[in-house]
Design a protein around this nucleic acid. Sequence first.
DNA 1: GCGTAACCGAGACGGTACGTCAAGTCTTTGA
DNA 2: TCAAAGACTTGACGTACCGTCTCGGTTACGC
Lengths: 201, 201, 201, 201
Amino acid sequence: MPDKTAPDAARRSQRSRQAICEAALSLVGETGYDKLTIEGIAARAGVGKQTIYRWWPSKGAVLLDAFTETMEAGEGTLPDTGDLATDLKAVLRATVDEFNDPAFQAPYRALYVAMVNDSEVSAGFTSKVMEPGTQAYVDRIRAAQDAGEVSEDIDPRLAAELILGPFAQRWLLRSQPLTHEFADSLVDMALTGLRPRNPRA
Amino acid sequence: MPDKTAPDAARRSQRSRQAICEAALSLVGETGYDKLTIEGIAARAGVGKQTIYRWWPSKGAVLLDAFTETMEAGEGTLPDTGDLATDLKAVLRATVDEFNDPAFQAPYRALYVAMVNDSEVSAGFTSKVMEPGTQAYVDRIRAAQDAGEVSEDIDPRLAAELILGPFAQRWLLRSQPLTHEFADSLVDMALTGLRPRNPRA
Amino acid sequence: MPDKTAPDAARRSQRSRQAICEAALSLVGETGYDKLTIEGIAARAGVGKQTIYRWWPSKGAVLLDAFTETMEAGEGTLPDTGDLATDLKAVLRATVDEFNDPAFQAPYRALYVAMVNDSEVSAGFTSKVMEPGTQAYVDRIRAAQDAGEVSEDIDPRLAAELILGPFAQRWLLRSQPLTHEFADSLVDMALTGLRPRNPRA
Amino acid sequence: MPDKTAPDAARRSQRSRQAICEAALSLVGETGYDKLTIEGIAARAGVGKQTIYRWWPSKGAVLLDAFTETMEAGEGTLPDTGDLATDLKAVLRATVDEFNDPAFQAPYRALYVAMVNDSEVSAGFTSKVMEPGTQAYVDRIRAAQDAGEVSEDIDPRLAAELILGPFAQRWLLRSQPLTHEFADSLVDMALTGLRPRNPRA
DNA sequence: GCGTAACCGAGACGGTACGTCAAGTCTTTGA
DNA sequence: TCAAAGACTTGACGTACCGTCTCGGTTACGC
């Protein structure tokens, strides 16, 4: 006996689910996160509001689902040419281009908002969107460690954050433009560190 | 060139302004950003709604004003004991504690949301809130350069971002807890970089 | 051809409609027409504002509906004792009493205001409220014509107005009190006219 | 002990008074009574709101003042050609034309609303606007009594109402158009009455 | 001829109500 | 049988005015 007349997932209409996700993505691109409404999504999807409320707890959750759907085929690995700096720069430059594309930026920024507000969404976003990307960095760095290109005693995850954190911040704050030069400098600095290579001695 | 019959700032009631800022801060702490309403602020402040709309364009702007007011006395400099790592760790540990304090965290997180949504707020937030803090790091790092503790050819601002970016990211994503250990590791890694200090030694 | 995605009248909640009408009538009696507010009606009726806006275009229209509802059972005929003067006086005296009753007067006066302002309401008021009452007079006068008591060449409708018009004006203007004597005199004068019965000749 | 620090009428600005009256009349013609606002009048007149509140208790009172001002030169008498019917018809036809003029109709209708709502205005309206007009009818009818044209035992004031009441009613209700034919019929019927002139002849 | 007391314009203030929009719940209807 | 359609209550939105108040400035009177 279900506690709350739980919906029967088996009978779920895939057509509706699809339409709702598409509507949510296209609307958030047009109007931004906080003008995104359940009513609007329902109307655009040609669906009753209840169909949304039945399956998602909040508009943030809808957005998260919609977003993850578009990136099913996450390319989980970074290239490995043997030179870590080159590989990281290549990937980060591509990411720069992606985050400068308005069509991609709008829903991503919306998700960020949804996430900061709602720790439910936060968990999903972290594990489904952020984690795969980060893990690819971690793997590549670990490979570099095995090749002796990176010091053994550093934590690869923290190292990944050292690169991705400043990148994300600059994108969020819009404080300075995201450029390829920025990507390159960031990688270089992360690899080298602040301290002089050959201290006095 | 008057934009729209601008209100006369000279006649502005300081009592109201104060009350509105306080109400905004206390409410955002209680209910979170997206349950924060202009009506609620007006009611709590004992003020007509129009008095808010007259002086601020959005609730994000109110929040920004309210927040900046509490940090007028920005501590603009970092300590300088001569050892950069020690100084950065000390400050970052203090920041960790601050960002773990729920009373501080709520309005700050709210501001982040306001900012990601609204590039108007974004600019104000960056220049009034982020910039002073970042600048203190920049100054300290430049001092370290003068002392020969940091390589001459790095950009101090980018270096500051290298530390603050990962920190902000971890706080926003709630992916892992903010601890003193994290602060220390972050500083160490930023100073040293990923590459082995003494390659092939 | 529905103008604007017209609501589906079949699904209309009769409970809400009833409550709104009752609330409107009781409130207008307490506060007068221009202190009557949609918000007040909604609150008193325990109903959302939107439920009012969905079905009525203005507070005048609500009032008109509410008022007509109370007089569904319009007694459409005047007594006919064979003596027109007697019958008219009897009815007009009753009307005097009715219009001196504050409980009746308030909403009626309010409707007058709504009507003078708004020709939409004006038409409804005329056809649903005024017309039935006037028609009863017309019928009785026509009967009197058939009985030879009233001249054949007068227009019964104009005759009805000859009696009701002065009555309504005195009520509206509050210039002099509405009394039974006034009713009697009015009927007498309307029947006899100003001219001497037996002119010189 | 002054009740409310009454303003000093001697120092009143006639320029402002004039401007307010003109603004009130022109605005009520453009927007109707209930869209007429004190703020609007003040703005149009180039006057502070307080200047209105200082001298008038309500917008109805302003309107009444404004209206009476335009009819200072009240034509206090009806023509007397010796034939009452002719004279009454002439005047009533002129009144028909006046009340069909939109420029005149709008403020007059507005005043009616103000009056039905507010018994303060009602008294002023009756005595300053209605009374002079009615009195002219009363005088003319009394003259006709002296000339033997009208029965001695009728009340001239009631007689005046017998004509003016139906006229006002038809104008207010917009139930049927105001025409010269209506004016003529009304006068004829009022003079003759409903009963046959020569019963049983 | 010089305060000084008023009215004046302007408009900010704490409020109320507007008419709209959307949230989230509940009921009716059709396939 | 359940999804759609959509009416319902609730409540915030941003706007328009309310009537009160305070601000300089400008008369115009009384000393």
